[in-house]
Computed example of a mutant assay.
Amino acid sequence: MERQRLDKWLWHARIVRARSTAAALVESGHVRVNGVREKSPGHGIKTGDVVTIALDRSVRVLKVIGFAERRGDAASVTGLYADLEVPRE
């Protein structure tokens, strides 16, 4: 798989609990792909893209390193992204 819908990837990566929530997050402008605000849940992302997500009280910066066919358990998401956030001291 070369590309995947942004909302589907967010759901598979367990960033949100429901795909509809992922779509709403994107449509409301809380997601950037490679620094550009994305408003289309169907936007195709590819390996190497950097996805920035503004959640409740935090911002997550994730580099896409893979895709999944299905949503798995929490242990299965380790191959989907690399967390680029700098640890705070």
Rank of each mutant, 00 (worst) to 15 (best):
G44H: 07
V33T: 11
V33A: 07
D49T: 10
I53F: 05
D83M: 03
E27M: 04
S58P: 03
T78Y: 11
V77S: 03
G79T: 06
A18Y: 08
P87A: 15
V86E: 13
S20V: 05
E2I: 09
G42W: 01
R88M: 04
T52E: 15
R60I: 06
R32M: 06
T21P: 10
S28M: 10
H43D: 11
L25F: 06
T52K: 01
A54S: 07
A75P: 01
T47P: 04
F67S: 07
D49R: 06
N34S: 14
I65F: 09
S58G: 02
L55C: 02
V31H: 11
K39M: 14
V16S: 11
T52H: 00
T47M: 06
E38M: 13
K39F: 15
E85G: 08
R5P: 09
R88C: 08
S20I: 05
R37G: 14
K8A: 07
G35C: 12
L80H: 00
D56M: 05
R3H: 15
R57A: 09
S40G: 04
F67H: 04
S58I: 00
I45T: 04
R88N: 08
V33I: 11
G48H: 10
G79M: 10
G66S: 00
W11I: 02
R57T: 03
G29K: 09
S20L: 10
D56L: 05
E27P: 03
R3A: 12
